[in-house]
Nucleic acid binder design. Structure first.
Length: 259
DNA sequence: ATGCCTCGCACAGCGAGA
């Protein structure tokens, strides 16, 4: 089962790119973030025509998450929003069981500027996610938490083009890194680093500063696997070429294959 | 220190992203 996550930065602006990517890479499951559209504007018919069933949790203008599953896979929604979500007006989490695999699609708050209420919200949201992760972990079933975590997990050149340039950004703060690392220490596996222990693996390049051409990117889109899912991990990667296309999102899709 | 670029909303320029 190939599970991908893709922050599309606007389902309205990105639909042609999304459909093209589905056709080219054929993921079984695709977690989407930043729909930036209310529920009624989710292009269900286009997605269905591409061969995918979908569940989605949108809102006007901002945020919004969805899970697409290839037709024929059994998908049952298990969660819409996080339990004890610190601000339910933000649509940032949706979860389903798909052929026995629990898939949580998440869009963690960016948190800029630091310090401030937005950063406090980021940490509060992370706490609520960690609670959900604990519940899923205790269930001992294969589970995947996939999405835009808005966390650069280390200062390593392989995770960020310039740690110094990003040092004051919410993506690099020790508090949110610690929250991410607590999940790893608890037994969740970072799929990309399990398959590619070293080497630059970026998932985001800013639209400004000629970042894509300079490869000035960083890694903030992650798939975390429960032990039962990690046991089945055979491959993982980033669809970098997607970022280089016309009208591309500023994120590239990230994926993992479970046997 | 700020804008760079993009999206959505709405039709001008701003909030938000990261």
């Amino acid at each position: 089962m190939k599970i991908a996550t893709f922050n599309i930065n606007g389902i309205g602006a990105r639909l042609p790119r999304l459909l093209e990517w589905l056709e080219e890479t054929k993921p079984d499951v695709a977690c989407l973030q930043e729909l930036k559209a209310p529920d009624e504007r989710f292009p269900q018919m286009d997605i269905a025509a591409a061969g995918y069933r979908a569940i989605w949790h949108g809102q006007k203008s901002w945020n919004g998450v969805a899970i697409l599953a290839r037709e024929g896979l059994e998908m049952v929604e298990t969660q819409r929003g996080l339990p004890d979500d610190p601000d339910p007006s933000h649509s940032r989490y949706i979860e389903a069981t798909i052929d026995g695999v629990i898939v949580g699609a998440l869009y963690l708050p960016n948190g800029n500027p630091v310090p401030g209420p937005k950063f406090d919200y980021k940490l509060a949201w992370f706490d609520a996610l960690a609670d959900r992760a604990k519940t899923l972990f205790a269930g001992e079933k294969p589970a995947v938490l996939a999405g835009d975590w808005n966390v650069i997990s280390t200062d390593d050149k392989d995770d960020v083009f310039s740690a110094a340039r990003m040092a004051d950004d919410a993506l690099s703060q020790p508090e949110s890194r610690a929250a991410f690392r607590r999940l790893l220490h608890a037994g969740w596996t970072d799929a990309i680093r399990a398959i590619h222990p070293a080497g630059p693996v970026y998932t985001f390049w800013d639209y400004t500063m000629n970042a894509w051409a300079r490869d000035a990117g960083f890694r903030i889109d992650h798939l975390l696997l429960s032990p039962a899912a990690a046991d089945r991990l055979v491959d993982a990667g980033v669809d970098r070429e997607t970022r280089g296309k016309e009208k591309a999102s500023d994120h590239a899709p990230v994926w993992a294959v479970l046997r």
